[in-house]
Amino acid sequence: MSSILSDEVHQDSSNSTVKQTFLEATVATIVEEMRADPTVFTMGQDIRGGVYGAYPLAEFGERVRSLPISEAANVGAAIGSAMTGMRPVLDMTIATFLYSAMDQIVNQAAKSRFLFGGQARLPLVIRCTMFYGSSQAAHHNDRAYAMFMHVPGLKIVVPSSPVNAKGLMRAAIRSNDPVLVFEDSTLWGTRGDVPVDPDFIIPLGEAEIRQRGSDVTVIGIGQSLRTVDQALKLLGKDGISIEVIDPRSLCPFDWKTVLASVDKTRRVVVVDNGPMTCGVAGEILATVAEHFHGRLLAPPKRVTAPDMHLAFSPQLEKALLPSREAVAEAIKSTFEYRGKEI
């Protein structure tokens, strides 16, 4: 990958931006935070080899640490260092590797502050990447964030763009609590304008309204927002005014923004690449139903992957992820719904 900090900078005095990919923005933010705060350091398997982004090794010395393939000890070491004054950014590389460290994440990182009556502070970031849509097969391609939403004590973000990757990573590093950052390998190469301001931050729990509209609220998680964008193109100027929301952070979740939008539109579609049962979409729809029972103009709808593993074979893998057509159809049918015949 190219140098992360020397990319072309567009100087427009107040709001300088730089064109960066999602991955460049992520790594650049970690580097900036390491420069700003000597307690920030990063560890990951193969990290000094630069497999998932290059760090200035000479500058940081042993603050960039390659790890043995020992996931439980990797997470535990991050927890122990976080409890004692450091701010580790642990790169777990592939999201499915979190499972090998489940006890340390769920029983230790998420519970230690609570169990010890507030004595522990755990300013800990766990990065991981979901490798789906690229024939990695089912040991690498899970979209597992919803599993961790079930655990009180973990903060969770799913960035959908380079600028969000930057702002959310900074918020994660500066957070005093454990934060899981779920990155999407299919977004890593996407480029966008990213602020160069070393304090640019997107607070955890602030959704982004990507497009304002008044007929249907469409909420997308991570990469699925690209599918939503494609669906909007398919719908064209179909006369449907669509509000598109990116929650960005799953815990804390910006219920206020989502509920205010549905209050206006009274129609909601949630798109998520994760499996359906006990997923993010189900949680959002349940909350919407609790708030708007009897006031929705159409049944709340979700477009998700089914409760099925994604295959290696490209055609099979693609077939199970929400398509632009399915999302477009869901939006259209929700908008056109005129009451059920009894």
Binding site: G80, S81, A82, T84, D103, Q104, N107, Q108, F116
Partner: peptide, 28 residues
Amino acid sequence: ADFAIGSLGESGIVGAGMPIATGAALSA
């Protein structure tokens, strides 16, 4: 747990305290 005297916590999960002590040592 009594952080004031360096006790970073006991654990109901057998084996779970070892990586955490390793991390505290890394921090030191």
